[in-house]
Simulated assay, not measured.
Amino acid sequence: MALNNFEISKTLTDSDITKTKVELPVIIVEHMEPVMMNGEHSVDLMAFDRWNQQWLLRYYTRPNNVRQTAFTAGWRQLVAANGVLPGDELIFSRRQDVGEMQYMIQVKRRTRTSEGEIVDVEVIKTVHGGPMIYF
């Protein structure tokens, strides 16, 4: 069975930032199961940001067909390293090109430019301990 490309997004809440996991939109289940899960309730995967930095994340789905999914292990490291805040938008996607599957992760923040224009900026990437923000 071929895996399809997909993209999900979620506006992050206070609990997404402070807990050891981020709950994901249920729609991700149809893209991750059953091919990825092989009957298991979690799988470790490598997600890349736009700078090709790797983030090891554990995707978890609750047993017994309850449709609750989350990133658990690795999530707190990503939040802490990148200054992720409540209200930021998490974007997680999968692309498959010529047989190679790749997961991508982004966090975007809505902000206002010095000219007053509202723009979305990407916040994932640290340099010297602080987040870099790019348009």
Rank of each mutant, 00 (worst) to 15 (best):
E89F: 05
L90N: 04
S93D: 13
I133K: 13
V127C: 14
Q53S: 14
G87T: 12
G116P: 02
V123L: 07
Q54D: 09
T20D: 13
S9E: 14
V35I: 06
Y59H: 03
L3S: 12
M37A: 02
N4E: 12
I124R: 09
L45C: 06
G87V: 08
V35R: 06
G83F: 01
E115Y: 08
R62S: 05
T126D: 08
Q54T: 11
P131I: 05
D120A: 02
V43R: 13
Y59M: 09
E23H: 14
E117K: 07
I8C: 07
E89A: 05
F92W: 07
S42K: 11
K21P: 00
K125I: 00
L45K: 07
N5W: 01
T13P: 00
V22W: 05
E7M: 06
E115G: 00
L57G: 03
R109Q: 03
V66C: 01
V22M: 04
Y60N: 12
D14G: 03
R62W: 08
Q53K: 14
F48V: 01
F48L: 14
L12Q: 10
D14S: 11
L78H: 01
Q53G: 04
R109G: 01
I124K: 06
Q96E: 14
H41F: 14
H128N: 15
L3I: 01
K108R: 15
T11P: 02
Y59A: 04
F71K: 06
V29K: 12
T11R: 14
Q106W: 14
F92C: 00
E30H: 08
E40I: 02
V35A: 04
I91L: 04
R110V: 07
D16H: 00
Q96C: 06
R95H: 13
